[in-house]
Amino acid sequence: MKKLCWIGSPFFANEMTALGWDVTVIRQRTTRLLTWGEVVATCKGEPDAVVLGDASLPPILAGIEAWPCLTAFHCVDSHIHSWQPVYAQAFDLCSISLRDHLPGFQGKILPDECLKWLPPWAPDNMRPRDVDKEWDLLFAGTVNRETTPKRFTFLTELKRHLPSLHVTHGDFRELFPKARVVLNYCERGDLNFRVFEALGTGACLLTPEVGHGQDELFTPGEDMYTYPADDMDALIQQAERLLALDGPCEQAGQNGLAKIDAKHRASHRAREYSDWLRSQSDKYRSRRLAHVADIHDGVLKLLYLHMAEGVANHELRTQYLRLSVATPPLI
């Protein structure tokens, strides 16, 4: 059984265990540099592969360019962190959640064939529930004037026009099935997990047109309904049309759920990712290890200097400055 160390956001790491991987998860939620020696100690031996699951943290793997096993990075927040395409060059493989950002990762040190579009997914246990509908139109998620200002302003204005809009937060598994229509709003134009999670509960989803392959995964007007991003008038018109009739909502909910159950749950992504890791010959790892100095000097040096300039923590700043000088030894 191959040993896999999954660092950061666990995503579908647990589903990998059913596919023959001995998985150790290191949940990294704070900016602390992790060394190869710590990984080996935590895994009780050298892993065959390391995956960094994007936890919206700055670079946290010290000397990753020289780690001796297969390495992979799954990027979710490339719409927030412009440095991710640079950091990805230090890995053997990189999967990207937002398809339209793939060109930003291409044409650099990491061969284009080592990049993969891996869209979001719904958890396996996020399913429809037989409950009464409590709300006509529901938005569930963070709505904060400081942290999500565009969303706050947009939803505040929308509620003036559609008083039946209910805004709350909590467990999506409990909330989504109670709405006739689930509204999605993307603060930064990303194809977010809420699309898949809403459809995974059998909800009728009304979501913005964002690109990133959304219309290739789900058919607007059949599996879900869409509105031009930030177009208040179009959103109001679409919402009022859906709420006037039950049939289209129910049918879209059934169709969207069928697509999720067929292709877009965590277990599907785990299978695809597992097959991808296992299919890799040793050439990518060997290529990286043969060019450690080039990767460091040509990619990571400037990135670490940039990170050192932007952090307030003195110890972390010092660590980034040390990493900018040379690849650290494997300890």
Score class of each variant (00 low, 15 high):
146 E>K: 15
276 W>N: 00
16 M>F: 04
279 S>H: 12
131 V>M: 11
270 A>S: 12
152 F>P: 03
279 S>K: 14
216 E>M: 11
186 C>Q: 10
105 F>Q: 13
32 R>K: 10
202 G>S: 01
74 H>E: 07
258 A>V: 12
65 E>Q: 04
169 H>F: 12
242 L>E: 11
20 G>W: 10
259 K>N: 14
258 A>D: 14
119 P>I: 06
187 E>I: 04
172 F>E: 11
130 D>C: 14
303 L>W: 07
11 F>Q: 01
172 F>R: 11
151 R>Y: 11
20 G>Q: 07
179 A>M: 13
90 A>S: 04
303 L>P: 07
324 S>D: 02
275 D>F: 09
220 P>N: 04
7 I>Y: 00
326 A>C: 05
146 E>G: 08
232 M>A: 12
1 M>A: 04
19 L>V: 05
243 L>P: 12
18 A>L: 09
288 R>P: 02
292 V>K: 10
127 R>Y: 00
244 A>D: 03
74 H>A: 07
200 G>Y: 04
326 A>K: 15
226 T>I: 03
152 F>S: 03
137 L>S: 00
276 W>T: 07
231 D>A: 12
214 Q>M: 15
45 G>S: 05
98 L>G: 12
34 L>G: 10
179 A>V: 13
74 H>R: 10
74 H>K: 11
57 L>Q: 10
109 I>N: 06
215 D>R: 12
158 L>M: 04
126 M>K: 03
254 Q>N: 04
204 C>F: 08
315 E>G: 00
20 G>S: 10
243 L>V: 11
10 P>L: 05
62 A>M: 02
200 G>V: 02
131 V>H: 10
154 F>H: 04
32 R>E: 15
242 L>C: 13
310 G>S: 15
42 T>S: 06
325 V>A: 03
9 S>L: 02
80 I>Q: 04
62 A>W: 09
72 A>N: 09
37 G>S: 09
39 V>N: 06
298 G>K: 01
241 R>A: 06
126 M>Y: 08
54 D>S: 09
326 A>I: 06
52 L>T: 08
314 H>G: 06
229 A>E: 09
57 L>C: 13
278 R>M: 11
284 Y>V: 14
271 R>N: 13
83 W>F: 00
290 A>D: 15
18 A>R: 10
327 T>W: 02
14 N>K: 02
169 H>L: 09
47 P>N: 13
64 I>C: 00
306 H>S: 15
221 G>P: 05
244 A>F: 01
26 I>V: 12
196 F>S: 03
